[in-house]
């Protein structure tokens, strides 16, 4: 049994390696042979060179400066969204008045894509950090709020009844029944919110910014350096992947009782 799974793993890995290597060689080949102009697709070595240039300092800072510029905005907006979204979502689930007041507002605002808020944010908060924090907040707050609401609402009725019948106080019911039942859904929402936040931040940085990875991309575009553009996309993908995978691990740790996702 064990040998079978390890064989399967080996097969998967080798297929992955071959297809990645193949893709890389196509990229390397068409650019080295001059089939594709370096102004359309930068050769791999130029991208590496660009990564090196960025890490040594490019457009007002090294890699760390751009990293912390992007990260500080995304985390501030995200934390704000969690602080506002989760309690509001729970309040909507517990108090019908709150639900009737905010529910329709959220339903109306929800179909407006977060990037559409970027210009208003610039208008209201200027081109500095606070405008981007606002846009990230808008992008992240809805999944937090909705999944907090849904998580509470989907607490099995029977469990609540049983707990009450056994004489649990409201606080005990909340802590011992509602929270454990709602947490998996809430955490999923928070993970989706983080992904949304990251994608929206990149969009905001493309539209207006003075530092950060999105800024590097759009700056490379304006100075006709597509190697910089490509080089900046790698850290964006890496950070996005790291945040998602990190959150998944956290979810497993925090909610080991989580039902396996229906396959």
């Amino acid at each position: 049994m064990l040998s079978k799974t390890s064989k399967d793993k080996f097969e998967r890995l080798s297929y992955a390696a071959v297809s990645m290597a193949g893709l890389f060689f196509i990229w390397w080949g068409v650019t080295a042979l001059g089939w594709v102009s370096p102004f359309v697709l930068p050769p791999p070595w130029e991208v590496l060179d660009a990564l090196d240039r960025i890490s040594r300092g490019y457009m007002g800072g090294n890699l760390w400066v751009h990293f912390s510029a992007s990260m500080s905005v995304v985390l501030s907006g995200y934390v704000l969204a969690v602080i506002v979204g989760v309690p509001l979502g729970m309040a909507m689930a517990f108090l019908p008045v709150v639900n009737r007041l905010f529910g329709p507002l959220i339903m109306i605002l929800r179909p407006v894509p977060p990037p559409a808020w970027i210009p208003l944010a610039i208008l209201w908060f200027g081109i500095g950090l606070s405008g981007k924090v606002f846009v990230v907040f808008v992008a992240a707050v809805v999944p937090c709020l909705l999944n907090a609401y849904l998580g509470v609402m989907e607490t099995p009725r029977k469990m609540l009844d049983v707990a009450r019948m056994l004489g649990a106080s409201r606080w005990t019911v909340f802590r011992e029944v509602v929270v454990p039942s709602a947490l998996p859904i809430l955490l999923t929402g928070m993970r989706i919110a983080l992904g949304n936040a990251w994608a929206t931040l990149v969009a905001a940085e493309l539209v207006v910014s003075t530092a950060g990875f999105g800024f590097l991309i759009i700056n490379g575009y304006h100075t006709f350096e597509d190697s910089i553009m490509a080089a900046a996309m790698f850290p964006i993908a890496l950070i996005g992947a790291a945040m998602n995978i990190g959150f998944l691990i956290l979810e497993k740790r925090l909610v080991p009782w989580r039902r396996e996702t229906t396959e």
Partner: peptide, 18 residues
């Protein structure tokens, strides 16, 4: 699946707008 999925996993994490 084994050949396409890894490439896809890589691309998936780049926000489309980038």
């Amino acid at each position: 699946d084994m050949a396409i999925n890894p490439v896809f996993e890589l691309i998936r994490y780049i926000p489309p707008i980038a």
